[in-house]
Every structure is written in structure tokens, then in C-alpha cells.
Design a binder for these strands. Structure first.
Lengths: 148, 148
DNA sequence: CCTAACTGTTAGGATACCTAACTATGAACA
DNA sequence: TGTTCATAGTTAGGTATCCTAACAGTTAGG
């Protein structure tokens, strides 16, 4: 495994996997286009829930650079969904915290999107759903390989 | 199944699925950032291979509107990887065809990306790879639900 | 023919991301 | 204690991708 010249089977699997990734991007765009909060903003908001999160942590979680996170945070702030506060332990840092309106917004956005997806999952067979359920943790593992 | 109020389990699966989608977008960005051809351009190029494809078909395949496809096609054309020709059957239409340089480029780009992914898949256990392989067709089925 | 439908291109605008440069704070150490 | 280096965010400027609207040319139906 994991040699310089991956075997045929591994390459074929990689190819299919890549196709799934490509489609996922498309699906996410569709999902986003019907909502007010973008996926990135939803991600920020989620991290801002319990006690808030620092800008750098948010950026890392979203897989973007700090200025890109700042940009989304500012939009959410203008929309009244989060507020920025000084970190009591480190005055260089900024804690992003969800406002009550932010809490409400995230619940709505999350539920709507989940219902949309659940509607589609509902059309699958039990078996198909099981295979998805089994694969998701592995997906997660793979995706985490890219965090570097 | 597929009721107005999806069950708990379905909603939970939808939530995890959505998380995987989100991560996929991130992974695709990473993968793209190390290459010269963007994923969208690679998609155009692939369709331009055998006998070429019409602009509208390319747009549909990529999940974007026609002007967005045109934009990518123009870039590839300027790079010498495709050429645009009149469709013999319908003079309104344009066929996008890969040049020899385009053929070469796609092979390189595809192989490099597959090797990268294969390298990661190689670190998984046999079982994990099997669960991915089993899920990919279902992913495909789900993703096709969005083609509307 | 003449109009309606279709295929693409062009123009203009929005969004999200990036790098580089800057400010301010913290931490290490002589 | 004071200098220096590292860290946290913001701001400025630029790029890529997508979109809608308006347009030109072609096809097809009545």
C-alpha cells in the first residue's frame, strides 16, 4: 500500500472518488443557492455558538485563510447574527459569538437544509442508506488527511 | 419514507452527509490549488475529447449556466487546449474539441490528481476502502437527484 | 414569410478566495 | 526592563467563478 506507483484498483477507486467530490461541489452550490446564509457563513455561525470561537480557529475549520474568515464574520456581524468581542485572555485575539438572532438563524438554516437532503435520502433503499452511513466516517477520515 | 416530516434517523444521516459535502468542497479546493487546470476546466476538457461536445452540453454537465461554460472554454482555447468549430448539423451550435495539447494536458492533470487521492486511499484498511467503493454509486445516485 | 424558440457570446455585477502589508499585543531573553 | 521576534486580526488590492440580462444568428412551425 501507499507506494510510489499506486496499483490499478487504487487508481480506479481514486478516479470514482474524485468524480464524487466533483459532484459534491455542484450539490453544495445548489443547496447554497436556495438559502440566505452561505455554507461558509453557516460554518462560522456554528462555531460561534457555545462561548464563541477565535477568528483563526474559524478559518482553520473552514479551510480558508484568516482574511477570508474575517470577511464572512463581518457580513454576519452586519446582519446582526454574531458579535466580535475582545478575548479576555489574549487581547490580540477576537472571540466571535453568536447573538440570539444568530442562534435562531442557524437552527432554521440547518433544519431546512437537512430536510432537503433527508427528502432525497428518503427515496433510497434501506441498503443504500446503510452503505452511505458506513462510508461517511471514512469520508471524514480521508478529508482530514487534507487538513495540513 | 419521504414524508413531509422526515424521521429522526433520516435527519441525523442528512446532517452527517451534509458535513461530508462541506468537507468535499474544501478538499476539491485544495486539490485544485496545486494544479494549473481548475476542476471546471478539466471537466470541459474531458467532454471535449472524443468528437467534442456542444457548449450547452458542457454547461449542463458542469452544473453551470452557459455563459460560465463559455468563459472556461475561452480560457482553454487561449491556452491552446481546445478549439471551437461550427457544428455541421446546426449552425447555431458550437462544438468544443480538444487539441493534441489538450489530450496531453488532461492525461497529466488526471493522473496527478488520481495519484494524490490514491495515496490517501492507500493508507486506509481494506474494509474502509470497500465501504467507500460501495457508497460511491449511491453518492452518484443522490447527486443526480439535483440535476433538475 | 414571420414569429417563436433555441444556441452562444458579451457585458456587467456579485461573491468568495488569496497574498501582502499593516497594527497591536504577547513572549522570550539578554 | 527593553529589544526583538512571533502571533492575531484587519485592510487593501487582485483573481477566479458564477450569475442575469441583453444581444445576434439560426432553426422551425404555422
Amino acid at each position: 500500500m501507499n507506494t510510489d506507483r499506486p496499483e490499478e484498483a487504487l487508481m480506479a477507486l481514486a478516479q470514482s472518488f474524485r468524480e464524487a467530490l466533483r459532484q459534491s461541489v455542484y450539490v453544495m452550490r445548489r443547496l447554497d443557492s436556495e438559502e440566505q446564509l452561505s455554507a461558509a457563513q453557516l460554518g462560522v455561525l456554528k462555531m460561534a455558538l457555545d462561548g464563541g470561537a477565535r477568528v483563526g480557529a474559524i478559518a482553520r475549520n473552514l479551510g480558508v485563510k484568516v482574511p477570508s474568515a474575517t470577511e464572512q464574520i463581518i457580513k454576519l456581524e452586519r446582519a446582526g447574527l454574531v458579535k466580535r468581542e475582545a478575548d479576555p485572555d489574549d487581547s490580540r485575539a477576537v472571540r466571535v459569538v453568536a447573538t440570539p438572532a444568530g442562534h435562531a438563524a442557524i437552527e432554521n438554516a440547518d433544519r431546512r437544509r437537512n430536510e432537503y437532503i433527508a427528502g432525497i435520502l428518503g427515496t433510497l433503499s434501506e441498503e443504500e442508506r446503510d452503505s452511505i452511513a458506513a462510508a461517511l466516517p471514512v469520508f471524514d477520515k480521508i478529508n482530514n488527511s487534507f487538513q495540513n
